[in-house]
Design a protein around this nucleic acid. Sequence first.
DNA 1: ATAATTTTGTACACTTGTGTCCAGTAGTTT
DNA 2: AAACTACTGGACACAAGTGTACAAAATTAT
Lengths: 212, 212
Amino acid sequence: MNEPAVASLNGKTGRPVGFVREQAIEAAMHLFWKKGFLAVSAKDLADAMNIQRSSFYNSFGSREAVFIEALRRYAEQSPDAPLDHVAPGQAVVPVLVSTLRRICHARAKDAEGRGCLVCNGMAELVGVEESIGPILEQAVKHRTSVIRHLLQQAISQGEIGMIENEDAAARAFVAFLIGLNTISKIVRDEGQLWAMCRAFLAGQRIPKAALD
Amino acid sequence: MNEPAVASLNGKTGRPVGFVREQAIEAAMHLFWKKGFLAVSAKDLADAMNIQRSSFYNSFGSREAVFIEALRRYAEQSPDAPLDHVAPGQAVVPVLVSTLRRICHARAKDAEGRGCLVCNGMAELVGVEESIGPILEQAVKHRTSVIRHLLQQAISQGEIGMIENEDAAARAFVAFLIGLNTISKIVRDEGQLWAMCRAFLAGQRIPKAALD
DNA sequence: ATAATTTTGTACACTTGTGTCCAGTAGTTT
DNA sequence: AAACTACTGGACACAAGTGTACAAAATTAT
C-alpha cells in the first residue's frame, strides 16, 4: 500500500492493517449514501475503501456489517446529532430551530442531493433486510423519543405552550424531518427548504420570534 | 395457460396474449412495493406475473418499463389520488383531512407495512436511476403543485385563513405526507398515525372542528 | 536475524442475473 | 385450411457477484 499504515492498534505483533479503519468506513458511508444499500456490491466497497475484496471480507465480514458501521459514523456527523446533547435547563427551541436550519443547509449544500442515509435506508430496507431494518427502526424510535423529551422540556421551561398529545407531536416532528430529508433530493434550494421548515414550525406552536 | 385469454384487443389476427396486462402490472406493482426496485429481478417479475421470462422481455421490455407502468397503476389506487379530482367550488379541507385519514388507514391495514411505493422509490432511486428517478421527481412536483392549488382554493373559499408562503406550505404538506408514509413502515397503529396527522393539521391552520 | 502474525493479491467454484434467440406449440382470424 | 401471432421452454453467451482459500509479502516483537 501507499500509506505507511497506522491502524491496527491492537498492540499485538504482526503486519498492521494497510488502511485506517475509520477512513474506510467513511468511504463506505459516502458510497451507501449516494447509491443506497442494494446498489453497492462488495467489490464497489473494496474499491471505494482502496483495499482488496479479500481484505474487505477479512476485515469487515460483510456488506451488512459495513453498512451498520457506516450508520454509526453517519449518526456522528448528521445535522440532527445535536438533538442528542441538550442539557436539562438548556433552551430547547433554539436547538430545534438550528437543527432544521442545519439540515436545510447540509442537504442543499450536498451537490449530489443524497438526502439522509437513515431516511433512504428506511425506505429501502425496513421490512426487507433482516439485519439492517431493525437497526433503522431503532434509530427512528430513538429520535422520536428524544424529541418527545425535548418537547416536554420545552413545555416545562415555558418555551412553548402545552401540547395535547406529546407522543403524536414528537412523531409528527420526526415524520416532517423524514419528509424534509427525502424531499431535499428534489427541492435543491436551501431557501425553499427553510421556508418549508418555517411553514411547519409556525404551526407547531414555535414562536415566530424564534425563527430569525 | 389456464386463463382463456382476453388481453390483446389489438384487433389483429393471431394468438392473443395469455395474460391480462393490467393484472400482470398489478402483480409487479405489489412485488416492487414490497421489496423495492433493485431487489426485484426479471425472473422475480416473470414469476409474479406467472409468465416466462422470455414472454416478460417480449411484452414489457425491461424491469424499468414495468416499474414505470406499475407507478401509473399505483397512482390510480393510491389513497391520495382523490386530491387530483377536487372540483372548483368544492370544499377542500374535508378532502385533505379524509385523504390523511385514508392514508393512515391504508398504511396500517397493510400487513406487510410497505409504506408508499412512490416514497420508497424516491428514497431508493432519485439521483441514482436515470429513467425512473425523473418520473418520481415529476410525481412529487405534481403532487406539490396540486396541493398548492388546493390551499389557494381553500383560502379563496374562506375555509382557512391567509397563508404567508403558499409554495412553502404546499411543500411542507408534501414533506409531511412523505414522512407519514415512510414512518408508517415503523408506526403500525392507525390511531397513532392519525394522531400524528392531527398534530400536524392543528398547526396548519386547519380548524379543529374539521378533524372529527 | 528470526519467529510470529496479519494483510495482500490472486484464484477458484458457485450462484445469480441479463438480454437474446429459436423451434415447437397453441390459439384466432380470415 | 391458411395465415398469423403469441406463449413455452430451453439454451446461449456473458457479466457480476459471493464467499473461501492460500501462498507470498510485509511488518513487528523477541
